[in-house]
Nucleic acid binder design. Structure first.
Lengths: 217, 217
DNA sequence: TAGATTGTTAATCGATTAACAATC
DNA sequence: TAGATTGTTAATCGATTAACAATC
């Protein structure tokens, strides 16, 4: 329930996955689930499921299992806080930015998209996922007024570095970074999620070209 | 140089990152680099850099360091093979698909986008990153003729599961999966890279709401 | 009570880091 | 030769898995 201060990153990264599976179970009308069944569904072990849930305080019932709605509520509370949505801005409203903006408003909880920015005059003034696209020059004034907590960067890699420095000075706490640049190295004062789309595809290719799981001593 | 059969996933996932940094060094005209300097730049340790490089056979020079172009060539060869590009199709040519298609052709090596598919009549026939968008009905015939190795799925989560099963039967070896569904659980015969955009953002939010790195015993 | 399943501690496993001899 | 830096083995660290007593 309350944070023990000792939750490791691997566990945190699994929380959204638990949340997705529990959402599905809930939609299917299931009210109880055991660690072993959940583990089987998710491709992990019952031990890990129980270990993970116990980082936050056991909300299962011995001999019975876990109540789906209790788990959903507890993990939801952990992920999204107590209802207060994090004000979020998006910078770079091109194709990627546009796609990601709909994730923010549709596929995640815990965030509220309050502004979008671009330098392309052709995009400025248009609406995207419920907000109007503003010119980048208005970023400072906007942040001074609305105090966003999170910035989602969908800009080319070069721009990302300077922009991150600027965002730090504007009081941004977290960045979701789509550029091919590791912002966390240069800006440890930010909470950064580096998402390098090309990297994933490259490592997939490596694994395809070097199959290790088959007929090999 | 040749694969020892014992390269762990964490190492593989770091290869593209090494590749990016080495590309930058090369562009800056650097010809040599030590493990410690590379580590400092990337936010890791010299030990890890050397350990990683030695999974594939040492291509450094004791007392001197590593030659940037040698590293680039070796890691490039590991990631992309010996020049043969993996034929790749993309399914779902909406905003996300459109954004990702440009990554495939611009920001990665080792892949060749040979086809794109969608069910939306408004998109069919249009060009996207150098290929024409075809109706999904033509997928089977297309695969029979061109034998793609990789499929990039940018479709809603429901569609992804059935589609993956279908792709397996069509002989696809790897899937880059953007849907909110863990294909690797249901299709272990596929090499899958699950990219759940919402998940990243959720765990970023958790970390923002639970700062652990500051004034705490 | 008996069966099931959690909470939690202990054992294992694997990845990262440190150390140092080899060598350029 | 002396200094630097790799290759590689050993030590540490952390995460996952196994085991089992507690308990519904």
């Amino acid at each position: 329930m309350s944070i023990q201060g000792k939750v490791s990153l691997p566990v945190i990264k699994r929380l959204p996955k638990y949340y997705r599976y529990l959402k599905n179970l809930s939609a299917d009308g299931r009210d109880k689930i055991s660690s072993s069944e959940l583990a089987r569904m998710m491709g992990t072990t019952a031990s890990q499921v129980r270990q993970d849930f116990n980082c936050f305080g056991g909300f299962g019932q011995q001999g019975i299992g876990y109540k789906v709605d209790v788990l959903l509520a507890e993990i939801g509370k952990l992920l999204f806080g107590d209802g207060e949505l994090l004000p979020t801005i998006l910078i770079g409203a091109g194709r990627l930015g546009s796609a990601v903006s709909s994730f923010i408003s549709r596929d995640t909880n815990g965030y509220r998209l309050i502004g979008a920015f671009d330098i392309n005059p052709a995009l400025i003034g248009h609406e995207m996922s419920g907000v109007r696209i503003l010119p980048l020059e208005e970023l400072d004034a906007f942040c001074a007024e609305h105090q966003p907590a999170v910035a989602v960067l969908c800009v080319p890699r070069q721009s990302a570095v300077e922009l991150a420095g600027h965002l730090v000075r504007l009081g941004i706490q977290g960045v979701w970074n789509f550029s091919h640049y590791d912002l966390s190295v240069e800006y440890p004062q930010l909470t950064v999620e580096n998402v390098h789309l090309g990297d994933s595809l490259m490592s997939l290719g490596y694994r395809l070209r070097n199959p290790e799981s088959e007929h090999k001593g």
